[in-house]
């Protein structure tokens, strides 16, 4: 593994994404209300997208970009579904 500027910054990005993921997980476990947990799940989807993008830069593969587009479309639908469920129960 060479210590170029790109590699160092990619590894730092991985560490920060992991930290953000852990903080969102804390919010999911501890969250006082259901709404907090829903927002944290949405945040985790965004963090996953960033993780996949950084990984695809690291291994020089453009195939993973489509996965990111599809996750960004789908996570939105999950949030909408949970919000309709919350509205029905009210």
């Amino acid at each position: 593994m060479n210590y170029s500027l790109l590699n160092i910054s990619l590894i730092m990005a991985f560490a920060m994404f992991l930290l953000a993921f852990a903080l969102a997980l804390v919010r999911i476990i501890k969250g006082p209300t259901l709404q907090d947990r829903v927002v944290a799940m949405d945040l985790i989807a965004s963090i996953t997208m960033g993780f996949i993008l950084v990984y695809s830069v690291l291994i020089n593969e453009a195939m993973y970009f489509d996965i990111v587009i599809i996750i960004s479309l789908i996570s939105f639908i999950g949030t909408v579904a949970i919000s309709t469920y919350l509205k029905q129960n009210k």
Binding site: I70, L73, I74, I77, V80, A81, T84
Partner: peptide, 13 residues
């Protein structure tokens, strides 16, 4: 699955 998600999303809206 992706095509179904399009239909499901439309039925939520």
């Amino acid at each position: 699955l992706l095509a179904t998600l399009a239909i499901v999303y439309y039925s939520y809206a």
